[in-house]
């Protein structure tokens, strides 16, 4: 909810703009010319996993978090337990 008091409480925003730009542009400059990198990494990592387990591609989540010094690439692969093993465990 906003009130007249917010006008006095407002913080300057230019610093945040500057920081966001610096982080974004450092990543964009570094990744110029390798647009398909994340797709390539996902495909190759999934290929390795698929050699050992069955992967449902709809259950793969890819996330990227870009920070000042680095990027974190997260690939979450949900691996269903094969039915045969489920039965064996419940016996």
């Amino acid at each position: 909810m906003s009130s007249i008091l917010d006008l006095f409480r407002r913080r300057p925003t230019a610093n945040l703009a500057r920081e966001r730009l610096q982080i974004l542009l450092s990543h964009e400059r570094a990744s110029a010319g390798q647009e398909g990198l994340i797709i390539t990494l996902r495909e190759e990592i999934l290929a390795v996993i698929a050699r050992h387990v069955v992967v449902d591609r709809d259950q793969v989540q890819v996330k990227v978090e870009r920070t000042g010094e680095s990027s974190i690439l997260e690939i979450d692969v949900t691996m269903p337990i094969p039915r045969a093993k489920l039965r064996a465990a419940s016996c």
Binding site: P12, T13, A14, N15, A17, R18, L21, Q22, L25
Partner: peptide
């Protein structure tokens, strides 16, 4: 507005 901190300053843009 730049002086108030609500707009990127000349130096900010030049730096970037």
């Amino acid at each position: 507005r730049a002086e108030r901190g609500d707009m990127l300053k000349v130096e900010d843009v030049l730096d970037i």
